[in-house]
Design a protein around this nucleic acid. Structure first.
Lengths: 338, 338
DNA sequence: CTGAAAGCGCTTACAG
DNA sequence: CTGAAAGCGCTTACAG
């Protein structure tokens, strides 16, 4: 913090008015004479004066700040969402404080405490694996809070989520329409909502097409390429391997592509691979990845929009956004039918 | 901001002491009796009291906050650096305010003004294409500021940068040692320091190996895959196309891989491709990308370390970090010698 | 070890 | 339209 910055008193002295008037002029209050106001603003500008947002916050009770907690900003999904949040916040004169929780419940609690101390006007949470202790704490907060892709089914707060079931159904239907019959689902670690929902969409699509849902074509990975490789290896060792695999997310799909390559299989001719998210890297892969696009930036913007509505007391509700099927090179009809 | 949160006065009343004593107890001042301090802290904890960081900041003149400006947090390089910054800041009880400049000079100015108003204790800038107007402003600020991969040669402030020349020399040497003689350099838009330096490292390596430096093997892209594709297309249309190309960064290398694929060329057998950065996606590509690793998180941590030193008046200087050659699949000996 | 008092730099009724 | 005054919630010399 600048040791001895100017204050409105200094400007007041230079302009020969009271500091109240300076305060008003700087806030563009209609209560002050236009000419004096202009003069005051000119003096302030020439002096390179920056009003103290901290003093202002203490006086007004608002900080014009949102806190955002992510597992790690190095996750491209989080980065895209935060980009949307920052855009929306900034266009309203709000700043965002960013904190990484590292999927560590203790850190998550500390982060939220820190946000409370800093008197943020609202909190956005995108830490997908939040602990339940932490969740309880969130519900008790006086600060409005919005979750993005909330992994807990209870609708205890506001959230914006993708419609996982519909999107996964569409993804699976895409594979079915290409002619696949043995379609595998490579999930994430269990227990969270989006995992459950994506698996459910997969099952529903199979059921709708009167295809059997074989339990050993459903496996859990861990959302890393390595974890996916293991599962795919296992499937490919079978007498009747799947001809297509729908992955929980793009990162798992990267592992599926890698495993196929190691087995000397051609994607999509020998194995179709489908992702979920449409991270920027999906179009850089070889083959490029067919996937479900989550409107990440827009989700960030919408979550921020909810926060603003909550702040001015408007009615609000959680929102569902739709995924979009993006067909690229990694899916095609199976080589031999059935 | 919470409408009517508790203040230290409320805690003081409950503990039957003055608010001065509460303030001291909460700051763990040795000036207060151990038992009373414990009691006060217990009361505060039970009441879920969060001290106001904004009031504290006004009183102390420090906000324990750093401002970070990036072009866009959706850029994986920026995201990794910010991750390092956040870790380092957080471990000292500091928060980070994140702002995207969008490579827009006006926005950049506004962001810095906003940081000044918020009285951040220091600023980190990773907006690589900062305008010069903006730069002048930065030099006049009273707040300590550190640049990461500063694109302007003037050493007007503190910075942490990768040693581009040495790293590019090593990259080019790697290709030479594999037996390549016609090695191309695919640069970025011109005029910035890291572009100049990387090209210089390339030239130096050729010179050291007594290889000619052909001007038409040096082209500028724009750090997008599409831009790279264009340049590569042009080269591949030649009678004597290069057998290897060293790209300004990994994103350009993605374009090089794509172009090679479209021409039916095998990488690395027909064309070796080398990147720079080692973004996470480098190991997801097919083939996986040989590249120079920039220690992005560490650069973030180091930049933050400089800020802390500057804050407590320690001597400091800019720092150069080293790149590391990461050999993967995209480079190999040329098919036919020479 | 403790408390009363002043001050940090703003905003905003209130009175004129 | 303008200013004096109180208040936002802390910290920290100062005096005891």
């Amino acid at each position: 913090m600048a040791k001895s910055g100017l204050s409105i008193k200094d400007i007041a002295r230079a302009a020969n008015v009271s500091h109240s008037t300076v305060s008003r002029a700087l806030r563009n209050s209609p209560l002050v004479n236009v000419q004096t106001a202009d003069q005051i603003r000119k003096i302030a500008r020439d002096a390179n004066f920056r009003i103290s947002a901290v003093a202002r916050s203490l006086a007004t009770g608002r900080t014009n700040t949102f806190g955002v907690v992510v597992t790690t900003i190095a996750d491209p999904f989080a980065a895209e969402v935060v980009q949307g949040v920052e855009e929306a916040a900034n266009s309203h004169g709000y700043s965002v404080i960013l904190a990484n929780s590292g999927a560590n419940p203790e850190r998550e609690m500390k982060v939220v405490h820190s946000f409370e101390e800093r008197r943020v006007d609202g909190i956005l949470v995108m830490s997908s694996r939040v602990g339940s202790l932490y969740l309880r704490h969130l519900t008790e907060m006086k600060v409005p809070i919005v979750l993005i892709n909330n992994q807990h089914p209870e609708e205890f707060v506001y959230s914006v989520m993708i419609d996982n079931i519909a999107a996964s159904e569409e993804a699976t239907r895409h594979l079915i329409q290409l002619g696949h019959r043995r379609i595998a689902y490579l999930g994430d670690r269990g227990g969270f909502q989006s995992e459950n929902e994506r698996c459910q969409g997969y099952r529903q699509a199979l059921a709708a097409a009167n295809l059997p849902c074989s339990p050993d074509l459903i496996r859990q990975g861990d959302s890393t390429p390595e974890g996916a490789v293991q599962v795919i290896d296992e499937w490919l060792a079978r007498a009747q391997p799947p001809t297509a695999v729908f992955c929980y997310n793009d990162i798992s799909a990267v592992g599926a592509l890698l495993a196929a390559r190691r087995h000397g299989l051609n994607v999509p001719a020998d194995l179709s691979v489908m992702g979920f998210d449409d991270l920027p890297l999906a179009s850089y892969l070889n083959p490029t990845l067919t996937t479900i696009r989550q409107p990440m930036r827009d989700m960030g913007r919408q979550a921020t929009g909810i926060l603003f509505h909550l702040l001015d007391g408007s009615a609000e509700s959680s929102r569902r956004v739709s995924g979009e099927l993006i067909v690229r090179e990694s899916t095609a009809a199976p080589r031999k039918s059935g």
